[in-house]
């Protein structure tokens, strides 16, 4: 059981790490999408079927498209997707900060006596989730809907060009 988890985790972490160190931003984005897919496999492994498919639908289907469109809309020519390397001090300091945070978190996790729950996967059907979302959590659902609508409108307003102005420039 743990072997599958290590496999999923290893692939996910490798994809994310390689993505963050690549120069070509399109390759970075595609590898990160692979890493998000790995997260959804983790959800599937943990038995949260609905969250796993929602993750694929939202991240691999929607966020990835927004990211790729944004990359293509913010470049002057084809070579523009190759990002210039960062300064050495910046990379080293970022690695130092990240490494120390990682050390802190991992030692905290390993040092805490965590209660181990049931061995078998808890069953949570989509119907249970639906009743929860439409009943006790209805307010949260409504707020999430409002946030999404506002974000959609905001994104359109921000990204839309004033066509007249665009012609003049």
């Amino acid at each position: 059981m743990n072997l599958i988890l290590v496999l999923i985790g290893g692939l996910m972490l490798t994809a994310a790490a390689v993505a963050m160190s690549l120069r070509n931003i399109i390759h970075s984005a595609l590898l990160l999408i692979g890493s998000w897919l790995g997260v959804s496999f983790f959800y599937l492994w943990a038995g949260a079927e609905f969250v796993a498919f929602a993750q694929v639908l939202v991240y691999v289907g929607a966020v990835s498209m927004v990211v790729l469109f944004a990359v293509l809309l913010t470049r002057r020519d084809r070579q523009d997707v190759v990002v210039a390397p960062e300064t050495r001090t910046r990379a080293i300091s970022a690695l130092l900060v990240g490494g120390s945070v990682a050390g802190l978190l991992v030692s905290a996790v390993l040092g805490t006596p965590l209660a181990t729950g049931p061995a078998e996967t808890p069953t949570l059907t989509v119907k249970d989730l639906g009743t929860l979302l439409a009943g006790p959590q209805a307010a949260g659902l409504l707020i999430a809907g409002v946030i999404l609508t506002v974000a959609l409108l905001g994104a359109v307003v921000l990204a839309a060009t004033d066509s007249g102005k665009e012609d003049a420039s």
Binding site: N2, G9, L13, F42, R90, A94, G98, L105
Partner: peptide
């Protein structure tokens, strides 16, 4: 704990990426 270690490593990769 294994799950938590994996997720903290993922968090740190994201952090390093965002910083560097």
């Amino acid at each position: 704990q294994l799950c938590l270690v994996i997720s903290s490593l993922l968090f740190c990769i994201g952090l390093v990426g965002a910083l560097s």
